[in-house]
């Protein structure tokens, strides 16, 4: 009686500079596994399909409930979170690859530093520190809060950058995620006080105008963030900002 198994073809690489190679693995089938529990199984017994002893596969993870974005990888050709990729719903052999838009640290683990740098660059936060207590900020309408909550779901996973044809080594584009964050923080009644500053950054090199409207990001985002709506809205905001810059304005913040 042949035992049911789960087959994997995993793209591995020893470190950032070494060449990638493919290795096949097979583990006994269990119900209700996800890609991470399968990778854990392989870590316990890292023997590849031809019976040779191999090394445990390296990957990244944290929350295990699709809110941190750390476990993102390319599964059967599409970038997604491995913690919510259920084995029973995947076609076999399951192909796992790292998201090559980012530098690969080892195997399936990538370095998403560029995304966090972008968030710093666009000032994706609300400055509330003063030398004295500034008191409560202006209130936000509940309907707007609910809308903004959707934008705040971004987990900096990098899937939208991986899906974007304009995010690559030939282009300086910072990608969709940090753009949408500007819209989030500019919509906040206190964050709005730094609106102009954030828009200026988006109008700099590698910014908003690098978007070529392929609209892959909005299709790929696991959190359903309306990235292309954010981009178009920011196009409107930066257009007006550029008019204010050029002609001068008594309404410039």
């Amino acid at each position: 009686m042949s035992q049911k198994t789960i087959r994997f073809i995993i793209t591995r690489q020893a470190d950032t500079s070494s060449a990638p190679y493919k290795e096949e693995f097979e583990i006994p089938y269990r119900e209700n596994m996800n890609v991470i529990s399968a990778l854990m199984e392989l870590r316990r017994n890292p023997v590849n399909s031809s019976g040779t002893n191999s090394t445990p596969i390296t990957w990244d993870m944290s929350c295990l409930e699709e809110v941190c974005g750390a476990c993102s990888m390319v599964i059967n050709g599409k970038p997604r979170q491995s913690c919510t990729a259920l084995i029973d719903q995947l076609e076999q052999p399951i192909r796992l690859e790292p998201m090559r838009t980012f530098p690969v640290i080892r195997d399936l683990m990538v370095d998403r530093t560029r995304m966090f740098e972008s968030l710093k660059k666009v000032k994706a936060w609300i400055p509330i520190d003063g030398t004295y207590d500034l008191g409560p900020g202006p209130r936000m309408p509940e309907s707007k809060r609910q809308w903004a909550y959707e934008l705040s779901k971004c987990m900096t996973c990098g899937v939208c950058l991986e899906a974007c044809p304009n995010v690559n080594s030939k282009s300086p584009f910072i990608g969709p995620a940090p753009l949408s964050q500007v819209r989030l923080f500019n919509a906040h009644p206190t964050g709005e006080m730094n609106r102009g500053e954030r828009l200026e950054t988006l109008m700099g090199d590698g910014g908003l105008t690098n978007c070529g409207n392929s609209q892959n990001c909005v299709q790929a985002c696991p959190k359903g963030i309306p990235l292309t709506t954010s981009i178009a809205a920011l196009n409107r905001d930066t257009t007006l900002q550029s008019f204010r810059n050029f002609f001068g304005s008594d309404n410039n913040i």
């Binding site: 050709g77 690559n168 030939k170 392929s214 299709q219």
Partner: peptide, 24 residues
């Protein structure tokens, strides 16, 4: 200059707008 910056990926993401991006 813009056209040759793109790395097309319609084989993975065969969406309408991505095709328009490529055809453009």
């Amino acid at each position: 200059y813009i056209a040759f910056q793109a790395k097309h990926n319609t084989s993975t993401y065969g969406y309408f707008r991505n095709w328009m991006f490529r055809l453009q």
